[in-house]
Amino acid sequence: MALERIVEEPANAANALCACVDLSLSFGRHRVLDGCNLEIGAAQVVGLTGENGSGKSSLVKCLLGFMRPSAGQVQCHPRAGYCPQENVLHRSYTVDEHLELIASLTRGAGPADAAYVERCVATLKLDRYRAYPIHKLSGGTYQKVKLLTALMHQPPLLVLDEPTDGFDWSMYLVFWDLLAELVAGGTGVLMISHLVHDRERFDRIVELREGRLHA
């Protein structure tokens, strides 16, 4: 009998902030995802791990609607906050210009709460970089801006793809404090990493291996 089990139970999409049922994705003949079931509820921290190239980011993009799955059903909160793995921020803008634009977007609710954004800027120690062009930021600071972008509308669901890349130890701890505060307020979190430390911080960790999710 295998020690690990394949996650097979259908997601209870009605109560979940994000769920997929029998999700499959193929690129030509290469099957990347094969019948994945996943569910993230309110105030849950779910870790998604797997080797490089195992399809973690593809799964997330299917969940968020950036990719069309080959089969299966996906349901996700429309106001999900997303910190992508890729460096997508605009190179010509300063941090402030970027934050001003993103804060103005309403996401079906309202613009970001300015006081909350200011608090996050202070917590993430981004104050001194506000006038910096984004292309001149260090890797860790760039990552903090991406994280703040995902957080600033206080979304009920956060999807974070390798969010701590480039963080020093103190910022890593600040990150978890920030996340704990959000989760205490009911935010659901899906965090993708090829290395999951601090397993006790997660409610659940699933591993993506050969296209399938293993608990």
Partner: peptide
């Protein structure tokens, strides 16, 4: 507008 192309990377 999403969804984006199947198989395409975000960037």
């Amino acid at each position: 507008r999403g969804p984006l192309s199947t198989g395409g990377r975000f960037d």
